[in-house]
Design a protein around this nucleic acid. Structure first.
Lengths: 180, 180
DNA sequence: CTGTAAGTTCAGTATAAACAGAAAGTACAG
DNA sequence: CTGTACTTTCTGTTTATACTGAACTTACAG
Protein backbone atom coordinates (compact mmCIF):
# COMPACT_ATOMS: atom_id res chain seq x y z
CA UNK A 1 0.00 0.00 0.00
CA UNK A 2 1.38 3.36 -0.98
CA UNK A 3 0.57 6.55 0.85
CA UNK A 4 -0.51 9.87 -0.56
CA UNK A 5 1.69 12.82 0.36
CA UNK A 6 -0.87 14.18 2.82
CA UNK A 7 -1.32 10.79 4.49
CA UNK A 8 2.39 10.30 4.79
CA UNK A 9 2.89 13.73 6.32
CA UNK A 10 0.05 13.14 8.73
CA UNK A 11 1.67 9.92 9.91
CA UNK A 12 5.08 11.52 10.28
CA UNK A 13 3.62 14.40 12.25
CA UNK A 14 1.70 12.03 14.50
CA UNK A 15 4.87 10.10 15.19
CA UNK A 16 6.62 13.27 16.25
CA UNK A 17 3.74 14.31 18.46
CA UNK A 18 3.83 10.89 20.05
CA UNK A 19 7.51 11.30 20.91
CA UNK A 20 6.83 14.60 22.60
CA UNK A 21 4.15 13.08 24.77
CA UNK A 22 6.03 9.95 25.75
CA UNK A 23 4.53 7.64 23.15
CA UNK A 24 6.79 5.47 21.02
CA UNK A 25 7.11 6.89 17.53
CA UNK A 26 6.30 3.66 15.71
CA UNK A 27 3.31 3.05 17.97
CA UNK A 28 1.98 6.48 17.12
CA UNK A 29 2.64 6.01 13.41
CA UNK A 30 0.91 2.64 13.32
CA UNK A 31 -2.08 4.18 15.00
CA UNK A 32 -2.08 7.13 12.60
CA UNK A 33 -1.97 4.77 9.64
CA UNK A 34 -4.88 2.71 10.94
CA UNK A 35 -6.79 5.90 11.64
CA UNK A 36 -6.41 7.05 8.04
CA UNK A 37 -7.03 3.63 6.57
CA UNK A 38 -10.52 3.01 5.23
CA UNK A 39 -10.44 -0.63 6.27
CA UNK A 40 -8.51 -3.04 8.50
CA UNK A 41 -4.88 -3.77 7.64
CA UNK A 42 -2.59 -6.74 8.19
CA UNK A 43 0.64 -6.36 10.14
CA UNK A 44 2.50 -7.12 6.93
CA UNK A 45 0.84 -4.22 5.10
CA UNK A 46 1.56 -1.88 7.98
CA UNK A 47 5.23 -2.86 8.08
CA UNK A 48 5.61 -2.34 4.35
CA UNK A 49 3.78 0.97 4.31
CA UNK A 50 5.71 2.43 7.23
CA UNK A 51 8.98 0.76 6.21
CA UNK A 52 9.66 -0.71 9.63
CA UNK A 53 10.44 -4.25 10.72
CA UNK A 54 7.62 -6.71 10.99
CA UNK A 55 8.58 -7.41 14.60
CA UNK A 56 8.38 -3.75 15.45
CA UNK A 57 4.85 -3.63 14.09
CA UNK A 58 3.91 -6.70 16.05
CA UNK A 59 5.07 -5.10 19.29
CA UNK A 60 3.42 -1.80 18.47
CA UNK A 61 0.11 -3.45 17.69
CA UNK A 62 0.20 -5.26 21.00
CA UNK A 63 0.87 -1.99 22.73
CA UNK A 64 -2.04 -0.34 20.93
CA UNK A 65 -4.29 -3.23 21.85
CA UNK A 66 -3.27 -2.85 25.49
CA UNK A 67 -4.26 0.77 25.22
CA UNK A 68 -7.63 -0.36 23.83
CA UNK A 69 -7.04 1.72 20.76
CA UNK A 70 -6.76 -1.04 18.21
CA UNK A 71 -8.52 -4.33 17.77
CA UNK A 72 -7.91 -7.38 15.65
CA UNK A 73 -10.59 -8.76 13.36
CA UNK A 74 -10.67 -11.78 11.10
CA UNK A 75 -11.90 -12.78 7.69
CA UNK A 76 -13.39 -16.16 6.90
CA UNK A 77 -10.78 -18.40 5.36
CA UNK A 78 -7.90 -16.05 6.16
CA UNK A 79 -5.52 -16.85 8.96
CA UNK A 80 -4.13 -13.34 9.15
CA UNK A 81 -5.06 -10.78 11.77
CA UNK A 82 -6.58 -7.58 10.49
CA UNK A 83 -6.16 -4.49 12.62
CA UNK A 84 -8.31 -1.42 12.86
CA UNK A 85 -8.98 1.58 15.08
CA UNK A 86 -11.96 3.81 15.63
CA UNK A 87 -12.44 6.73 13.27
CA UNK A 88 -14.27 8.64 15.97
CA UNK A 89 -11.80 11.21 17.24
CA UNK A 90 -13.71 11.87 20.44
CA UNK A 91 -13.70 8.20 21.27
CA UNK A 92 -9.98 7.95 20.59
CA UNK A 93 -9.35 10.96 22.77
CA UNK A 94 -11.29 9.55 25.68
CA UNK A 95 -9.66 6.18 25.39
CA UNK A 96 -6.21 7.69 25.59
CA UNK A 97 -7.29 9.95 28.44
CA UNK A 98 -8.84 7.07 30.35
CA UNK A 99 -5.73 4.96 29.95
CA UNK A 100 -3.33 7.67 31.02
CA UNK A 101 -5.47 8.54 34.01
CA UNK A 102 -5.56 4.92 35.02
CA UNK A 103 -1.87 4.24 34.49
CA UNK A 104 -0.36 7.50 35.64
CA UNK A 105 -2.69 9.86 37.43
CA UNK A 106 -4.35 7.40 39.78
CA UNK A 107 -1.10 5.80 40.94
CA UNK A 108 0.34 9.28 41.42
CA UNK A 109 -2.59 10.34 43.58
CA UNK A 110 -2.13 7.23 45.67
CA UNK A 111 1.60 7.88 46.00
CA UNK A 112 1.08 11.51 46.98
CA UNK A 113 -1.42 10.45 49.61
CA UNK A 114 1.19 8.20 51.16
CA UNK A 115 3.91 10.81 50.89
CA UNK A 116 1.76 13.48 52.54
CA UNK A 117 1.32 11.20 55.54
CA UNK A 118 5.02 10.43 55.58
CA UNK A 119 6.00 14.08 55.38
CA UNK A 120 3.68 14.89 58.23
CA UNK A 121 5.29 12.17 60.32
CA UNK A 122 8.67 13.72 59.55
CA UNK A 123 7.34 17.03 60.90
CA UNK A 124 8.30 18.87 57.73
CA UNK A 125 5.33 21.20 57.80
CA UNK A 126 6.15 23.12 54.63
CA UNK A 127 6.89 20.01 52.59
CA UNK A 128 3.72 18.42 53.91
CA UNK A 129 1.66 21.40 52.84
CA UNK A 130 3.20 21.40 49.36
CA UNK A 131 2.65 17.68 48.83
CA UNK A 132 -0.87 17.93 50.19
CA UNK A 133 -1.70 20.80 47.80
CA UNK A 134 -0.53 18.78 44.85
CA UNK A 135 -2.47 15.81 46.10
CA UNK A 136 -5.63 17.85 46.57
CA UNK A 137 -5.29 19.38 43.13
CA UNK A 138 -4.94 16.04 41.41
CA UNK A 139 -7.83 14.63 43.38
CA UNK A 140 -10.04 17.53 42.42
CA UNK A 141 -9.16 17.25 38.74
CA UNK A 142 -9.62 13.52 38.89
CA UNK A 143 -13.03 13.87 40.47
CA UNK A 144 -14.03 16.30 37.77
CA UNK A 145 -12.72 13.97 35.10
CA UNK A 146 -14.64 11.04 36.53
CA UNK A 147 -17.90 12.95 36.59
CA UNK A 148 -17.38 14.23 33.07
CA UNK A 149 -16.52 10.78 31.80
CA UNK A 150 -19.87 9.51 33.02
CA UNK A 151 -21.87 12.04 31.04
CA UNK A 152 -23.30 10.94 27.70
CA UNK A 153 -20.94 11.98 24.89
CA UNK A 154 -23.54 14.29 23.41
CA UNK A 155 -23.80 16.25 26.67
CA UNK A 156 -20.04 16.46 26.86
CA UNK A 157 -19.83 17.82 23.35
CA UNK A 158 -22.49 20.38 24.18
CA UNK A 159 -20.49 21.51 27.17
CA UNK A 160 -17.39 21.95 25.05
CA UNK A 161 -19.21 23.86 22.35
CA UNK A 162 -20.86 26.05 24.96
CA UNK A 163 -17.44 27.10 26.12
CA UNK A 164 -17.26 29.91 28.62
CA UNK A 165 -20.84 30.96 27.88
CA UNK A 166 -21.75 28.19 30.28
CA UNK A 167 -21.10 30.65 33.09
CA UNK A 168 -24.18 32.59 31.99
CA UNK A 169 -26.36 29.72 33.17
CA UNK A 170 -24.85 29.48 36.58
CA UNK A 171 -26.39 31.06 39.67
CA UNK A 172 -24.79 34.48 39.93
CA UNK A 173 -21.66 34.37 41.98
CA UNK A 174 -20.13 37.62 43.12
CA UNK A 175 -17.01 38.13 45.10
CA UNK A 176 -17.83 38.80 48.72
CA UNK A 177 -16.24 41.88 50.21
CA UNK A 178 -12.64 41.21 51.08
CA UNK A 179 -12.56 37.96 49.13
CA UNK A 180 -9.48 37.80 47.01
CA UNK B 1 20.77 20.77 51.71
CA UNK B 2 19.55 17.32 52.58
CA UNK B 3 16.13 16.00 51.69
CA UNK B 4 13.61 14.28 53.91
CA UNK B 5 12.51 10.84 52.73
CA UNK B 6 9.11 12.11 51.60
CA UNK B 7 10.65 15.02 49.70
CA UNK B 8 13.14 12.78 48.00
CA UNK B 9 10.46 10.31 46.96
CA UNK B 10 8.28 13.11 45.67
CA UNK B 11 11.13 14.36 43.50
CA UNK B 12 11.94 10.91 42.17
CA UNK B 13 8.29 10.27 41.34
CA UNK B 14 8.02 13.62 39.62
CA UNK B 15 11.06 12.82 37.52
CA UNK B 16 9.49 9.57 36.41
CA UNK B 17 6.21 11.25 35.58
CA UNK B 18 8.14 13.79 33.54
CA UNK B 19 9.76 11.04 31.49
CA UNK B 20 6.41 9.52 30.68
CA UNK B 21 5.07 12.83 29.43
CA UNK B 22 8.06 13.80 27.36
CA UNK B 23 9.73 16.04 29.93
CA UNK B 24 13.41 15.57 30.75
CA UNK B 25 13.84 13.81 34.06
CA UNK B 26 16.29 16.30 35.51
CA UNK B 27 14.13 19.21 34.43
CA UNK B 28 11.17 17.66 36.22
CA UNK B 29 13.25 16.92 39.31
CA UNK B 30 14.62 20.44 39.51
CA UNK B 31 11.11 21.78 39.27
CA UNK B 32 9.87 19.38 41.94
CA UNK B 33 12.68 20.43 44.26
CA UNK B 34 11.91 24.12 43.79
CA UNK B 35 8.24 23.40 44.33
CA UNK B 36 8.95 21.76 47.67
CA UNK B 37 11.52 24.33 48.72
CA UNK B 38 10.32 26.99 51.10
CA UNK B 39 12.61 29.61 49.57
CA UNK B 40 14.67 30.25 46.43
CA UNK B 41 17.69 28.02 45.80
CA UNK B 42 20.99 28.53 44.00
CA UNK B 43 22.00 26.30 41.12
CA UNK B 44 24.80 24.98 43.29
CA UNK B 45 22.40 23.87 46.01
CA UNK B 46 20.15 22.22 43.46
CA UNK B 47 23.03 20.31 41.89
CA UNK B 48 24.21 19.07 45.28
CA UNK B 49 20.78 18.11 46.49
CA UNK B 50 19.85 16.20 43.35
CA UNK B 51 23.38 14.85 42.86
CA UNK B 52 23.63 15.93 39.22
CA UNK B 53 26.22 17.99 37.40
CA UNK B 54 26.16 21.73 37.78
CA UNK B 55 25.94 22.08 34.00
CA UNK B 56 22.92 19.85 33.86
CA UNK B 57 21.18 22.05 36.40
CA UNK B 58 22.09 25.16 34.46
CA UNK B 59 20.49 23.76 31.31
CA UNK B 60 17.44 22.52 33.17
CA UNK B 61 16.89 25.88 34.83
CA UNK B 62 17.04 27.59 31.45
CA UNK B 63 14.51 25.15 30.13
CA UNK B 64 12.22 25.80 33.09
CA UNK B 65 12.58 29.52 32.60
CA UNK B 66 11.64 29.13 28.93
CA UNK B 67 8.56 27.29 30.10
CA UNK B 68 7.81 30.23 32.41
CA UNK B 69 7.79 27.89 35.35
CA UNK B 70 10.83 29.20 37.17
CA UNK B 71 12.25 32.63 37.68
CA UNK B 72 15.54 33.94 38.94
CA UNK B 73 15.71 36.43 41.78
CA UNK B 74 18.61 38.19 43.42
CA UNK B 75 19.80 39.21 46.83
CA UNK B 76 21.52 42.46 47.57
CA UNK B 77 25.24 41.92 47.76
CA UNK B 78 25.06 38.40 46.34
CA UNK B 79 26.04 37.71 42.76
CA UNK B 80 24.40 34.31 42.65
CA UNK B 81 21.08 33.61 40.95
CA UNK B 82 18.35 32.29 43.19
CA UNK B 83 15.65 30.23 41.57
CA UNK B 84 12.07 29.68 42.59
CA UNK B 85 8.76 28.47 41.26
CA UNK B 86 5.16 29.15 42.17
CA UNK B 87 3.64 27.10 44.96
CA UNK B 88 0.20 27.54 43.44
CA UNK B 89 -0.58 24.22 41.79
CA UNK B 90 -3.34 25.65 39.63
CA UNK B 91 -1.04 28.27 38.29
CA UNK B 92 1.65 25.69 37.55
CA UNK B 93 -0.88 23.52 35.78
CA UNK B 94 -2.10 26.34 33.58
CA UNK B 95 1.39 27.46 32.73
CA UNK B 96 2.32 23.98 31.54
CA UNK B 97 -0.96 23.67 29.66
CA UNK B 98 -0.52 27.04 28.01
CA UNK B 99 3.00 26.21 26.92
CA UNK B 100 2.15 22.82 25.52
CA UNK B 101 -0.85 24.22 23.66
CA UNK B 102 1.31 26.94 22.17
CA UNK B 103 4.23 24.68 21.24
CA UNK B 104 2.42 21.56 20.16
CA UNK B 105 -1.32 21.88 19.73
CA UNK B 106 -1.43 25.12 17.77
CA UNK B 107 1.27 24.07 15.28
CA UNK B 108 -0.51 20.75 14.88
CA UNK B 109 -3.80 22.45 14.11
CA UNK B 110 -2.06 24.58 11.52
CA UNK B 111 -0.38 21.54 9.99
CA UNK B 112 -3.63 19.57 9.84
CA UNK B 113 -5.34 22.49 8.15
CA UNK B 114 -2.71 22.43 5.42
CA UNK B 115 -2.84 18.65 5.13
CA UNK B 116 -6.61 18.61 4.81
CA UNK B 117 -6.35 20.98 1.85
CA UNK B 118 -3.59 18.88 0.37
CA UNK B 119 -5.51 15.64 0.78
CA UNK B 120 -8.52 17.19 -0.88
CA UNK B 121 -6.35 18.24 -3.83
CA UNK B 122 -5.15 14.66 -4.07
CA UNK B 123 -8.79 13.55 -4.30
CA UNK B 124 -8.36 11.12 -1.46
CA UNK B 125 -11.85 11.62 -0.08
CA UNK B 126 -11.58 9.22 2.86
CA UNK B 127 -8.18 10.50 3.97
CA UNK B 128 -9.45 14.06 3.63
CA UNK B 129 -12.41 13.31 5.84
CA UNK B 130 -10.24 11.65 8.48
CA UNK B 131 -7.73 14.51 8.57
CA UNK B 132 -10.54 17.06 8.62
CA UNK B 133 -12.21 15.30 11.58
CA UNK B 134 -9.00 15.39 13.56
CA UNK B 135 -8.53 19.01 12.62
CA UNK B 136 -12.06 19.92 13.64
CA UNK B 137 -11.70 18.09 16.94
CA UNK B 138 -8.50 19.87 17.86
CA UNK B 139 -9.96 23.21 16.85
CA UNK B 140 -13.01 22.63 18.99
CA UNK B 141 -10.96 21.63 22.02
CA UNK B 142 -8.63 24.53 21.45
CA UNK B 143 -11.53 26.97 21.25
CA UNK B 144 -12.89 25.59 24.49
CA UNK B 145 -9.48 25.84 26.12
CA UNK B 146 -9.09 29.44 25.01
CA UNK B 147 -12.43 30.45 26.44
CA UNK B 148 -11.78 28.65 29.70
CA UNK B 149 -8.35 30.21 30.01
CA UNK B 150 -9.92 33.65 29.88
CA UNK B 151 -12.20 33.02 32.83
CA UNK B 152 -11.10 34.26 36.23
CA UNK B 153 -9.39 31.44 38.14
CA UNK B 154 -12.08 31.45 40.81
CA UNK B 155 -14.81 30.82 38.21
CA UNK B 156 -12.73 28.04 36.72
CA UNK B 157 -12.29 26.40 40.08
CA UNK B 158 -16.04 26.64 40.69
CA UNK B 159 -16.70 24.93 37.38
CA UNK B 160 -14.36 22.09 38.30
CA UNK B 161 -15.86 21.64 41.74
CA UNK B 162 -19.36 21.72 40.30
CA UNK B 163 -18.43 18.76 38.14
CA UNK B 164 -21.22 17.12 36.23
CA UNK B 165 -23.87 18.81 38.36
CA UNK B 166 -23.34 21.75 36.06
CA UNK B 167 -25.68 20.04 33.63
CA UNK B 168 -28.53 20.70 36.06
CA UNK B 169 -28.24 24.39 35.34
CA UNK B 170 -28.38 24.05 31.62
CA UNK B 171 -31.57 24.52 29.61
CA UNK B 172 -33.05 21.06 29.26
CA UNK B 173 -31.73 19.34 26.22
CA UNK B 174 -33.48 16.21 25.00
CA UNK B 175 -32.58 14.09 22.07
CA UNK B 176 -34.81 14.86 19.11
CA UNK B 177 -36.51 11.90 17.49
CA UNK B 178 -34.11 10.04 15.27
CA UNK B 179 -31.10 11.87 16.63
CA UNK B 180 -28.32 9.45 17.40
C1' DC C 1 3.87 -35.90 9.04
C1' DT C 2 5.75 -31.98 6.30
C1' DG C 3 5.78 -27.55 4.57
C1' DT C 4 4.31 -22.95 4.66
C1' DA C 5 2.34 -18.81 6.33
C1' DA C 6 1.60 -16.17 10.06
C1' DG C 7 2.76 -14.36 14.59
C1' DT C 8 5.88 -13.69 18.63
C1' DT C 9 9.98 -13.38 21.27
C1' DC C 10 14.61 -12.45 21.93
C1' DA C 11 19.46 -10.91 21.53
C1' DG C 12 22.19 -7.79 19.59
C1' DT C 13 22.72 -3.18 17.34
C1' DA C 14 21.70 1.49 16.41
C1' DT C 15 20.06 5.95 17.68
C1' DA C 16 18.82 9.77 20.19
C1' DA C 17 18.80 11.96 24.33
C1' DA C 18 20.71 12.90 28.75
C1' DC C 19 24.52 13.89 31.30
C1' DA C 20 29.27 14.93 33.16
C1' DG C 21 33.34 17.37 33.17
C1' DA C 22 36.20 20.55 31.14
C1' DA C 23 36.75 24.82 29.01
C1' DA C 24 35.31 29.27 28.24
C1' DG C 25 32.87 33.30 29.45
C1' DT C 26 31.28 37.08 32.60
C1' DA C 27 31.14 40.14 36.37
C1' DC C 28 33.01 42.17 39.95
C1' DA C 29 36.10 42.91 44.25
C1' DG C 30 40.37 44.38 45.59
C1' DC D 1 44.81 44.53 35.87
C1' DT D 2 44.31 40.14 38.46
C1' DG D 3 41.99 36.77 40.91
C1' DT D 4 37.84 34.64 42.28
C1' DA D 5 33.09 33.32 42.25
C1' DC D 6 29.66 32.20 39.43
C1' DT D 7 27.42 30.82 35.05
C1' DT D 8 27.24 29.04 30.44
C1' DT D 9 28.61 26.39 26.55
C1' DC D 10 30.68 22.64 24.37
C1' DT D 11 32.44 17.92 23.52
C1' DG D 12 32.68 13.42 24.41
C1' DT D 13 30.54 9.56 27.04
C1' DT D 14 26.84 7.09 28.99
C1' DT D 15 22.39 5.43 29.16
C1' DA D 16 17.87 4.26 27.85
C1' DT D 17 15.06 3.07 24.39
C1' DA D 18 13.83 1.84 19.79
C1' DC D 19 14.51 -1.12 16.33
C1' DT D 20 16.10 -4.99 13.36
C1' DG D 21 16.76 -9.63 11.93
C1' DA D 22 16.85 -14.14 13.23
C1' DA D 23 15.15 -17.82 15.84
C1' DC D 24 11.26 -19.74 17.63
C1' DT D 25 6.25 -20.88 18.01
C1' DT D 26 1.72 -21.89 16.34
C1' DA D 27 -1.76 -23.21 13.21
C1' DC D 28 -3.22 -25.32 9.49
C1' DA D 29 -3.31 -27.14 4.47
C1' DG D 30 -2.05 -30.83 1.72
Amino acid sequence: MTLSKAASEFIVHWGEMGSRWGVNRTVAQVHALLYLSAGPLTAEEIAETLAVARSNVSTSLHELQNWQLVRATHLLGDRRDFFSTSHDVWQLFFTVLEQRVEREIEPTIAALGRLAVEARAEKRTDVTARIASMHAFLQEMHGWYQQMSKLPPSTLRSLVSLGSSITKWLPIRRKAKGEK
